[in-house]
């Protein structure tokens, strides 16, 4: 992968690399990709992708009190006492 592609990938997962870091990371990433590319050798044919054999439990629709308001916002990096504040979303 070239550095441009890596930068685009980083944007998807909300990470950024400065030029220096990008170069170092590109190299490492190349090695990691080569490592996982071993998988290409494996014949998987028409094997099914793994799926859990369990059934999702279906919960009864009965309301319970949630967290008290102050517990909901207690860890907020920035709050006005009611909600979670973030830089303005246009």
């Amino acid at each position: 992968m070239n550095q441009q592609e890596i930068a685009a990938l980083a944007e998807l997962c909300k990470l950024e690399f400065n030029d220096q870091a990008l170069e170092a990371f590109s190299e490492e990433f190349g090695a990691i990709l080569a490592f996982v590319n071993q998988l290409a050798e494996l014949e998987t044919g028409d094997t099914d992708a793994y799926v859990s054999s369990l059934h999702a439990p279906l919960r009864t629709d009965s309301a319970q009190p949630g967290l008290p308001h102050e517990q909901v916002i207690r860890n907020a990096p920035e709050t006005d006492g009611e909600g979670f504040l973030i830089p303005r979303v246009l």
């Binding site: 909300k14 907020a76 990096p77 973030i86 830089p87 303005r88």
Partner: peptide, 19 residues
Amino acid sequence: DGVRYGMRAEGADWSDMMT
């Protein structure tokens, strides 16, 4: 992503803040 809990870094807008 810095919105609801944990550490938060400054950003120009919400997206930059997350990054």
